[in-house]
Computed example of a mutant assay.
Amino acid sequence: MDNKELKREKLNLPNDGKKLLLHSCCAPCSGEVMEALIASDIDFTIYFYNPNIHPRNEYDLRKEENIRFAEKHGIPFVDADYDVDHWFELAKGMENEPERGIRCTMCFDMRFEKTAEYAAEHGFDVISSSLGISRWKNMEQINDCGLRAASRHTDMEYWTLNWRKKGGSARMLEISKREKFYMQEYCGCAYSLRDTNRWRMANGREKIELGKYYYGEDEQ
């Protein structure tokens, strides 16, 4: 165990929670969260429900990277449905909304509501997500959606811990490089891919090549 691991603060679930269902968006974001939970002896399961991710091969790659890391640590992994048609239906009229706007709120709500439903049906009293560790995300927006989803179920808590603090962001990058996780170049949805490519082309860069870059190898 290195010094950074030794400096991790021991975590406790809120309100004397017993069992955590952690919504995971991808391996790079969840790596540090998972290792922090393991170091704190917290009983948790990974819940992978991300029908926003487009196209399907990108979805499969992100999911398999997450499964690989979960299996390495012996963490249970729930592979939820790729309910992409429903996601696009909910996104109608929001196609041109900016990142962190109402389309993202819809997306977080959809994923957290499904997470909370599964948690309620399978004996989890706390839910949380690795989404908040990314500096590209709005922490308040994510927590609002998580709290709203948890509030619909009796005796369920959404854990609002800021995973970025106390070295979390730095360890996230270190773990990603150590594990050579797939490096995602856009948030995940079709509109994020479209807008990122538009920006790249306007700034003299090539369009994103899916499945090309990995942390610690061939970094841009």
Rank of each mutant, 00 (worst) to 15 (best):
V78P: 08
N15M: 09
E71C: 12
L61S: 12
G146Y: 00
H73E: 05
A150W: 02
W199E: 11
M34T: 09
I102A: 10
H153R: 01
G31F: 11
G216R: 10
W136A: 03
E121K: 12
R8C: 11
L147M: 10
C26S: 12
M139L: 15
D155A: 12
E97N: 07
P55V: 01
T154W: 15
I208V: 02
C26N: 11
L22N: 01
T160K: 13
C26F: 04
N203R: 04
R152V: 03
L22E: 01
Y47S: 04
F44E: 01
N143L: 14
N15A: 13
N162I: 01
L11S: 02
H153A: 13
E209P: 08
G211Y: 01
W199M: 10
S151G: 10
V126W: 05
I127W: 00
E117R: 08
L22F: 01
L173V: 09
S24R: 06
F181C: 09
Q141I: 03
S176A: 08
L210D: 14
D16V: 05
G17W: 01
G188Y: 00
I208A: 04
N162D: 07
I42F: 13
L37D: 03
P76R: 04
Y118R: 04
P98K: 01
R8W: 07
T45R: 05
S176G: 06
P98S: 00
W163S: 06
Y215R: 10
D16K: 13
N50P: 02
R152F: 05
M156T: 03
F44V: 02
C107R: 04
A39N: 14
M139K: 13
N197S: 06
D60Y: 09
N138P: 06
Y213C: 15
D60W: 11
S151E: 05
K63H: 06
Y158T: 01
A39G: 08
E89R: 07
N15Y: 05
D195W: 03
L173I: 12
V33R: 12
I46L: 07
T196W: 07
R198Y: 14
Y49L: 00
E113D: 13
H86I: 09
T196M: 08
S176V: 06
K63E: 08
L61T: 05
